[in-house]
Amino acid sequence: MAVAQTDFDTLATADKPQGYWRGVGRRFLRDKVAVAAACVAGGMILMAVFAPWVAPQDPFQGTMIRRLSPIGSEGYPLGADELGRDMLSRLIYGARLSLFMGVTPVLIAFLIGSAIGIAAGYAGGWVNSIIMRVLDVFYAFPSVLLAIAISGALGAGILNGLLSLTVVFIPPIARVAESVTTSVRKLEYIEAAVASGASAFTIVRVHVLGNVLGPIFVYATSLISVSMILAAGLSFLGLGVSPPNPEWGLMLNTLRNAIYVQPWLAALPGVMIFLTSISFNMLSDGLRSAMDIKQ
């Protein structure tokens, strides 16, 4: 046992073992922009969850004489829309469907895309080639076009909107998952795991997932911003969410005719989309640098 005591190279030893995520958290908190973005995004989510408590009025109840009241009207701090409904309340309630429509497709696509990409990356060879060539076909459509094509064919509706956006985001996520998995698969600890006699499923579960899900997840969060814009865009076109539901894209659509009467009122829903989108974007950037993932 003399060997142990005379080990000279103990330079790297810290006092306490540190998990990976603790370091990520520490680096993230040092990034002021990212923390601010996280606060805005978190605020939006809280607003959506607690909308009934936060909103001053019923977002569905309109008063005809209040139609298109300007910003700053009494009792209507942000004015009233074309049917005389309180704009502030509708914007607050709008967070629910808008966030739901923006975030859900990315989450579902994250699950499905990761599964496809990890399978392709781990299997390698011709299985990989077939999967990736099929994905290439979807890649050949600009994302806006694909989303509009699918939901245009399926018709309006929340479910159709979610479905088309999910289809749009699966290929890019799967592609990232494949490339991350392929690079992890070449590392010697995977070889060591293979040499242990473990099944492919066990190796993926124990050794691959933990090392690839982080980067894939960060990439997926960067898509939330795009997804928010696209989801609202679908509703703006009359696809996706339908009236009288409060949703920012749809509100932008119905208020579009009012830009000559109350121009700045009509632009309000877009501010919400923009704020959410940019905060998710910066949040994702901060997460990426905190996790030290090369782009």
């Binding site: 814009i229 932008l252 579009r256 989309i273 923009f274 989108s277 940019i278």
Partner: peptide
């Protein structure tokens, strides 16, 4: 650059029209 990719361009169009 961040603003450019985060802005809903259809809304930006409306703002420019306004």
């Amino acid at each position: 650059a961040v603003v450019g990719v985060s802005v809903p361009h259809y809304w930006l169009g409306m703002v420019l029209v306004i």
